[in-house]
Simulated scan of single mutants.
Amino acid sequence: MPSLGRPSSFTHEVVFRRCPDCQEHNIVREDDFVCAFCGSDLPAAWNVDPTT
């Protein structure tokens, strides 16, 4: 029985950013890099890695 290969990507990419002001995690929708919680600008670069 042949096996199915995994897809090269998902059908919809979800972009996450952490707000530098309130530290909340956000989902960026339609390239609108604005925090849904406090209204601050979100960074263009990934910043959701755990902090030490």
Score class of each variant (00 low, 15 high):
7 P>N: 12
44 A>R: 15
41 D>N: 15
11 T>A: 12
52 T>F: 04
3 S>P: 14
22 C>P: 01
34 V>W: 02
26 N>A: 01
12 H>P: 09
44 A>C: 11
13 E>D: 12
29 R>I: 08
39 G>N: 04
2 P>A: 12
49 D>M: 11
5 G>D: 13
45 A>K: 11
28 V>M: 03
43 P>T: 11
49 D>Q: 14
9 S>W: 00
33 F>C: 05
21 D>Q: 10
28 V>G: 03
42 L>Q: 06
3 S>Y: 03
31 D>C: 07
13 E>G: 07
35 C>S: 05
5 G>L: 11
13 E>W: 02
31 D>N: 11
36 A>N: 03
29 R>A: 08
11 T>E: 13
42 L>K: 05
2 P>W: 05
2 P>R: 11
26 N>F: 01
15 V>E: 04
17 R>L: 01
48 V>Q: 09
37 F>N: 07
11 T>Y: 07
22 C>D: 01
35 C>F: 00
41 D>I: 13
25 H>R: 09
6 R>M: 13
48 V>T: 15
14 V>H: 02
11 T>L: 10
26 N>S: 05
44 A>I: 14
8 S>C: 00
30 E>F: 06
22 C>G: 00
2 P>E: 12
35 C>W: 01
52 T>E: 12
44 A>E: 14
4 L>D: 07
45 A>T: 13
32 D>R: 01
28 V>Q: 00
52 T>Y: 01
11 T>Q: 13
13 E>P: 10
13 E>F: 06
35 C>M: 03
37 F>I: 10
47 N>R: 08
47 N>C: 09
18 R>P: 06
29 R>D: 04
26 N>E: 00
41 D>R: 14
39 G>M: 05
37 F>H: 10
9 S>N: 08
33 F>V: 05
47 N>P: 11
52 T>L: 07
10 F>K: 07
45 A>H: 07
31 D>Y: 03
33 F>W: 08
26 N>W: 00
2 P>I: 10
15 V>W: 01
27 I>V: 15
34 V>A: 02
18 R>M: 08
18 R>H: 09
22 C>M: 00
12 H>A: 14
9 S>M: 04
20 P>H: 06
11 T>P: 06
21 D>I: 10
34 V>I: 15
27 I>W: 00
38 C>R: 06
29 R>N: 09
29 R>G: 04
17 R>I: 04
2 P>L: 12
27 I>D: 02
48 V>Y: 07
31 D>W: 01
20 P>I: 04
9 S>K: 12
31 D>E: 13
7 P>T: 14
10 F>N: 09
38 C>Y: 06
23 Q>H: 09
39 G>S: 07
20 P>Y: 04
46 W>N: 15
12 H>K: 15
20 P>Q: 06
51 T>L: 14
43 P>E: 11
1 M>H: 09
20 P>D: 10
32 D>M: 04
24 E>L: 05
33 F>N: 05
19 C>W: 01
16 F>N: 08
22 C>F: 00
18 R>Q: 13
1 M>A: 14
8 S>Y: 00
18 R>I: 11
25 H>N: 11
